[in-house]
Design a protein around this nucleic acid. Sequence first.
RNA 1: GGAGCCGGCCAGACAACCGCUGCCGCGAGCGAUCGCGGGGGAGGAAAGUCCGGGCUCCGCAGGGCAGUGUGCCAGCUAACGGCUGGGCGGCGCGAGCCGACGGAAAGUGCAACAGAGAAUAGACCGCCUAAGUUCCCAACCGGAACCGGCAAGGGUGAAACGGUGCGGUAAGAGCGCACCGCGUUUCCGGCAACGGAAACGGCACGGCAAACCCCACACGGAGCAAGGCCAAAUAGGGAAGGAGGGUACGCUGCUGACGAUGCGCGACCCGACGCGCGGCCCGCGCGCCUUCCGGGUAGGCCGCUGGAGGCGGCGGGCGACCGCCGUCCUAGAGGAAUGGUUGUCUCGGCGCCGCGGGCCUCGAAAGCCCGCUGGCCGCUAGACAGAACCCGGCUUAUCGGCCGACUCCCGCU
RNA 2: UGGGGGAUCGUCUAACGGUAGGACAACGGACUCUGACUCCGUUUAUCUUGGUUCGAAUCCAAGUCCCCCAG
Length: 116
Amino acid sequence: MGAGQRLPRRARMLKPAEFKQAFAEGARIVRPPLAVAYRRNPLGHPRIGLAIARKAVSKAVVRNLVKRLIREEFRLHQERLPALDLVFYVPPGSARLDAASIRAALERIWSRLATA
RNA sequence: GGAGCCGGCCAGACAACCGCUGCCGCGAGCGAUCGCGGGGGAGGAAAGUCCGGGCUCCGCAGGGCAGUGUGCCAGCUAACGGCUGGGCGGCGCGAGCCGACGGAAAGUGCAACAGAGAAUAGACCGCCUAAGUUCCCAACCGGAACCGGCAAGGGUGAAACGGUGCGGUAAGAGCGCACCGCGUUUCCGGCAACGGAAACGGCACGGCAAACCCCACACGGAGCAAGGCCAAAUAGGGAAGGAGGGUACGCUGCUGACGAUGCGCGACCCGACGCGCGGCCCGCGCGCCUUCCGGGUAGGCCGCUGGAGGCGGCGGGCGACCGCCGUCCUAGAGGAAUGGUUGUCUCGGCGCCGCGGGCCUCGAAAGCCCGCUGGCCGCUAGACAGAACCCGGCUUAUCGGCCGACUCCCGCU
RNA sequence: UGGGGGAUCGUCUAACGGUAGGACAACGGACUCUGACUCCGUUUAUCUUGGUUCGAAUCCAAGUCCCCCAG
């Protein structure tokens, strides 16, 4: 498949300031149980950031599961995405957090991003 | 075979493809980083943060008070509120399990309601009329009243100032006696907690200390976001210095083969700012510019995993545990890794079929229930849960499985 | 991740270990032509589970949830 499906360090957001910018200046797409704040970046490729709050997902095992699933789907979709910083988070009040509903939400987010 | 009880262990396996990560090696780049290869990568609770210790910084002459915690005894341990063994009490037929289990004869307190009385108590109902006084009666070993006696019985309460029995008495009472309980002393066993025996006492010493407290013992405070190192930009602090421009001149200065060019130094020329200290000059301060210094933010690095360590053997101890020898290195992330997709197998579970038994029935069928070293190449990985400095415990959550010791019941020999 | 605090009617808030009280709200009634105000009455609570005690909102232990601080 080649380098397009890897997830190197440069494809991740690394600094708190970058997260702050994404939340402060970015647009948002909310598709419960997931949501994403995004803004253009000058790097020529998309970057992923995960902000899964303990308050939104209380159990650590579930938090890790959510993050893994998002990472994996991002890894497989990144070639088709524009150069954006994407900060995923779980909006409050999201009850169902199983693998199927997360994948479904991601699917809707990808198609929305493709038209943005 | 069935019930039960205790201890220990495990927490799906293998393979393929696509990924993440820190370590080692090679390579690219000034660097952030990137590529290739190799081998490593969650737990028994990683959890709650309820205790204890290491480590780090701060504080500290010594001792005491206060505060907090622990609390039968002995031991283990770095330490503990943990563990082991023992004692006592309770539960269980038993194996076993459970227990905040020091002191109420040091002091201060508390006990609503009910009840006569709630702590050096008390007399409502009740029991008694022996003694004393008076009266009734002809009289009395008869009766009544007063003065009194009693605490056995009733009743209240969570709790009522030893229990049972016999004697005793007017009725009663540890008033006397026996046994039990309790207390004191002595002796014996035990390191001790405690247990046993004897003698004496003659009921005094009720309950609550997860009430204040007393006694004994322990504890300095904060926490890896501890703490240390490197260190942009901006603002601010300190120190030193200071405008800037021009030239056709000079140099046994640099660059360059030479030259040219450019740079440096010297000389000369032009020009030396704003605000404040009354005006002007000098000077000083502020502003402005240059260089340096210290603190420090972003960011990076160390702390960061080799340790009261795991495994095996031998030895000591009832045991917790300890000693010696050998051997192994076994997660270190950090906007935060340890994953995703599939296949095969296996453990349990479910379903269907078969067989056996029971219920139902006159008997059966059907149906329901229970069981099986039984079949299917049927379906299904499925508990609690995710490291964040480390370790020893405790507590809480948990689908299930394996091994061993022991107890009770039934059957057979 | 570490440290600290809290939980009482629907809301806010009291209660030496002895019947859980008050205000607002809600409901019913009185007053009024009606409404408001006022007055009277009623309903509703100790986060959960154990333990200590005769007796627990209170004391002790474990758990659950919420809030705050350090980034």
